[in-house]
Amino acid sequence: MSLNNRYQALAASIAERFGEQLHQVPSICDELTYELDKADLVHVATALRDEPGFAFESLVDLCGVDYLQYGESEWQTRSATSSGFSRGVEREVIVPDADTVFDSQRFAAVYHLLSLSHNTRLRLRVYTGASNPPIIPSVVGVWPSANWYEREAFDLFGILFEGHPDLRRILTDYGFIGHPFRKDFPLSGNVEVRYDEEQGRVVYEPVQIEPRTLVPRTIRDDNRYSDEIRKFGDGS
């Protein structure tokens, strides 16, 4: 069976087995992506691992995503003819309050599953919902490889994984404050360190680097990638 047929068969059997629980997301490059409610995550994951028709023995990757600025560009080009381009990009610094209510589609965890017996891949996406801090059930009990991946997503995005045996920071420094991969965390960070001669130790100070953008983020409506043109291109 070719890869495409295999994925069609898999999509059909997932639709049959899970019905409304898994909601398929269209993909532009023939990959299977499903979104599901976080309450269903653990038993869906267990079923995907254990049922011989799916047999996703391996969790290849798990990562957090922050959709805060999705689809926002820094440089508007539509109105440029009347107003002209700005020379650079002004960044606003957002300091989130502890009691901020997040958009329910802001944080997500993305799971990449691999079935070695069927040679298929599957992507699952679970949104954290509006809770602050964001919480998702842990899948360490289903795939032990999730352990460090969940620690990483917690460290970088501040997503809590309920039921994780040892949810500590993993990549950032000992005593680090904040979750650096959130979109409202500045690229240059908040603190810088240096060795202080007088005190004879390393000290932390507010960062002095001005955040700046060399190339603005620009979104173009590129019609070459629209579905109709792609289909036309394949047919000719």
Binding site: V60, D61, C63, V65, D66, Q69, Y70, G71, S73, V110, H112, S145, W148, Y149, E152, V215, R217, T218, I219, R220, D221, D222
Partner: peptide, 23 residues
Amino acid sequence: GVFLISDGANKPYRLKVRAPGFA
């Protein structure tokens, strides 16, 4: 593995590198 999310911009929206050594 490289997991790439694009929102149509000239920069990646999110890039996740799946490093074998991590697992």
